[in-house]
Design a protein around this nucleic acid. Structure first.
Lengths: 339, 339
DNA sequence: TCGGTCGCCGAAAAGGTTTTCAGAAACGTA
DNA sequence: TACGTTTCTGAAAACCTTTTCGGCGACCGA
């Protein structure tokens, strides 16, 4: 008798073996009170003996709860979805709730398609993860199940969205650099069309303003989310503003480009110039030379919170609006106090 | 009437609206022949009007097919699982089959746990994705559903495993370098405890032997799967063997380290030294300077094949053994003909 | 007009579980 | 002994769909 030879072993089989009716067997297994201890023991033993596991489909049919949720993503690489999924799995408890992962690949009609499929599977709730941290179209108000938007907020304020605190992250980064004694701080970041780029920049500027400082290089260097832009921008920056003593990069990819050029120019990091990234994309940040201080998005926490909010919503307590979750600083070696 | 206001709209509602019995409604919707065209039209219209979508749980209960499969992974980053998932989704057709993604996080008891949950959800099949391309313990022979092992093969030859062709990949890489006119080829790779490292090296050596060549630097440089090792090994290599004209890196991470040091030493890539990676990990390979020629694992194809084999197995045609799927060369700018 | 065919429809069972409610058994009390 | 309580058990309905099979009406040929 191996791991799970439960081909078609049903509650009836258990009941028969225990010498009771299915009704009693059900109650015994589910801890209902109206069954004698001795009977319950007999049933439990029979169930184990047959390695019975209840048919969740049938359970779902009757209880009107499938014990599943859908995770609808558009994030090809799984870079955001996976940590969020893990967090959610964690919070739900994997024996209670399983999750369907569907990737719409940025395609609206594929999304509709998946949505239909998920609904016909009677998921108890939905988590929608966007590909980029900008407003995305709502799935609509008349869905039969609650929906939580994670990472990318919904454009409908009646929905509940969970986002990372990009403004706070920008503040955090600059604050850290200030604490390291840096004063001539530049900011190189990605596509200005991204809300995240704007928010992170704003946080940085705010914090600088509090110290009466402004950005080295005069303004934010917007460009693209790529190493190549990080390199190009750094070259221009060094040209225009050779006395810069810290660079806040809007993403770890950009930071890698920044480090690359600094290294090429034989500029010591963090001695001469401190560098900080954003996202904590492990493979990039931890492998950088030197390992990159960065702002961690806390995505697992985001996933856990999403799961909690969804559970609450399934129990009727649904909220709305945009909830901003804190990010956190992860210090490695690319930043250090001056001297 | 919005996207899907299908709270509890059942086939009975449709039937009532169309003025037929549920039996007829079912047949009409499922394209059964014994229903008049006019009647069918009426039913279809009613279904649309109510935006009816059949309860997959109930369907599964009766047809004994849930239309779901489980994807059991141990790959924290989703780096392998996600492309495989996408391929599988593709091949199944997302309206037919949805997939449960479960991450065991390398923990055997968590895996058992997920397995139980998936079986009680009556998945029609299982795809097991390992974290590294080495043999992993079988789930056992007495499971009620077919299982396909992807990426990491099962240790039981009675199971069907799908793996990438690492030996072939090694050959491919070296072959490409030879075609570029390189003769003094070195191989820097990761942990020798990984089958993948051994296989890739073997492929490379085989191909070299065919030309009567041996490895520059004398032997394979085994170490770790990290940029840091790539850098360290390259420094030693240049020291020992300054006339090397090509480096085959066992992974893109290692290749990044290699490129880094070559760049630092002002050695032109690909003019003086060609570099080739392995894995086609997009963010690393495409952003490298210069963009990295690499061996693509074809993971989506692996996923598609897994889905096909699983479908076949669900229809009773199950096979066993290890099936090796081809990888392919992806040429970017880090390799080029000499001259 | 009548018997036979054929095309279309509906009643009912099945699938595995939970839950309600009625009934049986055991016990105490008068 | 008769009756009321309490405690436990089981029959049956419900969840929603699919499928089998019997039946009804219409049409055809005689």
């Amino acid at each position: 008798m191996g791991a799970a030879a439960n081909r078609a072993v049903t509650l009836r089989d258990v009941a028969r073996l225990a010498g009771v009716s299915v009704a009693t067997a059900s109650k015994a297994l589910n801890g209902q009170p109206q069954v004698r201890a001795e009977t319950r023991a007999r049933v439990v033993k029979a169930a184990e003996q047959l390695s019975f596991s209840p048919n969740t489909l049938a359970q779902g049919l009757i209880t009107q709860r499938s014990g599943t949720v859908g995770l609808l993503t558009s994030d090809l690489e799984g870079r955001f979805s996976i940590p969020i999924l893990m967090g959610a799995e964690d919070a739900f408890g994997s024996d209670q709730t399983s999750v369907f992962l569907c990737d719409a690949r940025g395609d609206a009609i594929r999304e509709k398609h998946h949505l239909r499929a998920l609904l016909s599977r009677r998921v108890d709730g939905l988590i929608v993860v966007g590909a980029r941290p900008d407003t995305r179209p709502s799935l609509g108000r008349d869905l039969p199940v609650p929906v939580i938007y994670a990472y990318a907020p919904s454009d409908d304020p009646a929905d509940l969205s969970l986002v990372t605190d990009n403004v706070g992250g920008g503040r955090l980064a600059v604050d850290h650099l200030l604490r390291c004694g840096r004063r001539r701080i530049a900011h190189i970041t990605g596509d200005p069309g991204y809300g995240a780029a704007q928010d992170r920049a704003r946080g940085a500027l705010d914090r600088l303003a509090e110290e009466g400082l402004s950005l080295a290089g005069g303004e934010v260097w917007f460009g693209m989310w790529s190493e190549a832009w990080g390199r190009g921008a750094t070259r221009m920056l060094l040209d225009r503003c050779p006395d810069v003593d810290a660079i806040f990069a809007g993403s770890d990819e950009i930071a890698r480009g920044v480090l690359d050029v600094l290294h090429e120019e034989r500029i010591d990091v963090p001695r001469q110039v401190a560098v900080i990234g954003f996202d904590n994309w492990q493979v990039l940040a931890a492998n950088a030379r030197p390992p990159l201080t960065t702002v961690d998005l806390n995505l697992e926490q985001l996933g856990r919170t999403a799961a909690q909010r969804l559970s609450a919503a399934m129990d009727g307590t649904l909220s709305s609006g945009v909830e901003t979750l804190p990010v956190r600083l992860l210090t490695r070696e690319s930043t250090a106090p001056l001297r």
